[in-house]
Simulated assay, not measured.
Amino acid sequence: METLFEFQEDSLQISEDVVQVAADNTENGYEIFRILFEHRGSNLHLPRDVVKTLAQRTGWGEYRMLQLISKYQTQSLLVNEEVLMMAAENESNGGEIMKLLFQDSKEDLPVTESVLMAAVANTRCGDECIETFFRYQGDGLQISEMVLIAAAANLSYTGRRCLELFFQSRGQSLQVSVDVVIVAASNRLAGHRVMEVLFQYQGQNLPVSEDVVRTATGNHGEDGYKIVKLLIQQRGQNLPVSEGVVKAAAGNPGKFGYKIMRLLSRYQGENLPMSEDIVKAAAKNTGEHGHEIMKTVLKHQRQSLSYKQF
């Protein structure tokens, strides 16, 4: 490319198609972009979708291309909701790209519910995107129930961090529905940390229903056990432990299902609901520790008979 400019500097035609092809070049795109801007500067015509193309790419070169566009172009980058979505979903450079887009913009960018949901679902840099949103738009952000649900479902630490940012900004005015708590209870890898944040900021106002507890006892991951333990610590005797809750634990085929059943049995004692359906659920359990669950169920039945006889 340098050679072409050397011999045809003024006559060389650089169309938008050429720029788009360079943007699509994942190996040498940055160097080509650098040469194009050095020779054409702000006169280089950019295709409409070039920013969107670069925002969704995961390579560091694509981020550097966006930096070049920001440096040489006299007008702000063309950033619409679709571009923000691409950046928010980018799990490699999304945080840095989002900062660049907002730094370059001379007007408010469209941070919609869909953009927020994409950001909080990002398992690597979603929290960086949310920090940028708050820095530039603050009180203008609309944090809906669906955004909170998406954050609670995030399987990495970033979901928890996003929730912390929301609570730090909005405090008690942030409404947490039972559906948000149910999703947190179902999170196999990060639900425990998410639930800790919810209790930290909502305390006794956090809605913990029977559905929440049943979802937690049926959670197949290690976090299922941790969540049930946390629920017991936070709510004690007020925790709704129904037949359905115990049945979910009895049928839990996860590695920690038997620990959940033991925890319920120890916590509830003779008050632990027990029925034929629960025994059947344990008998059907195909998990590695299904037999341990059956042992706990049968042991509890024997103890219950002893209590009644006494």
Results as ranks from 00 to 15, higher is better:
residue 64 R to A: 13
residue 74 T to C: 09
residue 64 R to F: 08
residue 58 T to F: 04
residue 67 Q to Y: 03
residue 75 Q to W: 01
residue 96 E to L: 09
residue 82 E to M: 06
residue 94 G to M: 02
residue 78 L to Y: 02
residue 62 E to Q: 15
residue 93 N to E: 09
residue 56 Q to C: 09
residue 92 S to N: 12
residue 96 E to K: 15
residue 69 I to V: 15
residue 80 N to E: 06
residue 62 E to W: 01
residue 94 G to L: 05
residue 78 L to K: 12
residue 66 L to C: 06
residue 89 E to K: 15
residue 81 E to Y: 11
residue 67 Q to L: 13
residue 71 K to V: 12
residue 95 G to P: 07
residue 85 M to A: 00
residue 82 E to R: 08
residue 77 L to W: 11
residue 50 V to T: 06
residue 91 E to K: 11
residue 94 G to A: 01
residue 45 H to T: 15
residue 68 L to V: 11
residue 53 T to L: 05
residue 71 K to W: 01
residue 44 L to M: 09
residue 44 L to F: 14
residue 46 L to A: 05
residue 49 D to E: 12
residue 45 H to N: 13
residue 60 W to K: 08
residue 88 A to G: 02
residue 62 E to H: 12
residue 88 A to Q: 05
residue 70 S to Q: 07
residue 49 D to V: 09
residue 73 Q to H: 03
residue 70 S to K: 04
residue 57 R to K: 15
residue 76 S to P: 15
residue 86 M to E: 11
residue 46 L to P: 05
residue 55 A to H: 07
residue 76 S to D: 14
residue 71 K to P: 04
residue 65 M to V: 14
residue 67 Q to C: 15
residue 51 V to K: 00
residue 65 M to K: 10
residue 77 L to G: 12
residue 56 Q to L: 03
residue 45 H to K: 15
residue 73 Q to W: 00
residue 54 L to P: 02
residue 96 E to D: 11
residue 61 G to P: 06
residue 50 V to Q: 01
residue 64 R to I: 07
residue 93 N to S: 04
residue 96 E to C: 10
residue 70 S to R: 06
residue 53 T to C: 12
residue 44 L to K: 10
residue 61 G to N: 14
residue 71 K to Q: 15
residue 50 V to L: 08
residue 96 E to F: 05
residue 73 Q to N: 04
residue 56 Q to T: 08
residue 76 S to G: 12
residue 81 E to D: 03
residue 73 Q to R: 02
residue 64 R to C: 14
residue 82 E to H: 10
residue 90 N to K: 07
residue 54 L to C: 02
residue 66 L to D: 07
residue 90 N to G: 10
residue 64 R to S: 14
residue 96 E to G: 12
residue 63 Y to D: 03
residue 88 A to R: 03
residue 78 L to P: 04
residue 56 Q to Y: 04
residue 90 N to L: 01
residue 50 V to I: 15
residue 46 L to V: 08
residue 53 T to Q: 10
residue 80 N to S: 06
residue 87 A to K: 09
residue 61 G to M: 10
